[in-house]
Amino acid sequence: MNQVFTLGAIVGILTSAIRLATPYLYAGIGEAFAQSSGVVNLGVDGIMLISAFSAFYVVLNTGNLWLGLLTAILVGLVMGLLMSLISVTLKAEQGISGIGLHMFGLGLSSLLFNVLVGTVKTITGFPSIKIPLLGDIPIVGEIFFNHSILVYGAFLLVPVAWWILDKTSWGLRIKSVGQNPAAADSLGVSVDRTRYISVCIGAMLAGVAGASLSISLLDLFQDNLTAGMGFIAVALVYFGGWKPLGIMGGALLFSTVNAFQLWMQVLGVNIPSDVAVMLPYLLTIAALAVTVNRARQPAALNKPFERGES
């Protein structure tokens, strides 16, 4: 056990954790936008998959990473519009529409992969960029400042999302729609439009999350590439109490423990691998159970809004 706490291992664990947290950050913060406006989108995983494939396919054929990223965002937007159409305009039960969206994204991404690519191929994704000066700091530089651009982007998103949600009138409008849509409506805020925008932002960020897997972290695509990450991201939104900073805390906790258990396995610490793999899930629950302060969820979460109903 001692060798897990050597400097090299700790640097390794933290570097891994930063990488692993990236998709959860994009998807989780995106979901926080949707949920703040009152819409639970359980289809995040499906959006990630279809966007991951789109980005991968564009890069495979053009070699242009930015075009791939843009495609992922646009595909995410289309999926977000679909989700909004069903859940906001048509006021459908959000739990079902999200699962439907997930099935659609899962199926379509595998189908396109099967038809257009056929077998596993790798691409050259976003390279690691060492940030000048900061990257030269021993240890810290290695952990934090030697990643691909999408990793930096995920962490920059945290303050940006916090600022938008907490400090701009637009963010307050999103939250008011999620807390009390009837009141917001009576004040002239368009509930539907606000929810459309929030869900679409969330979906576009889920798209970036997918792209971060296929063209930055893994540089490939395969059937069901996300393996349920989108659902973990949704769970982390509850962990973070709908706050970007809290979501970052959850994502980092989850991925640090995950990186830690991999190191334990590599170093041959004598516990069953299955128990090691369980650890991040166990500790995320435990961490939430022992922290006292808990945010209340948006009051109108999961409730379609219809004018005239209370």
């Binding site: 499906g46 048509l90 529409s97 099935m103 899962l106 199926g107 379509l108 991404s109 189908l111």
Partner: peptide
């Protein structure tokens, strides 16, 4: 996978209707 996608659409549009 095509069938998974179609089933997803069925879920979306039936619940939407």
């Amino acid at each position: 996978s095509l069938i998974t996608a179609i089933l997803g659409l069925v879920v979306l549009f039936v619940v939407g209707s």
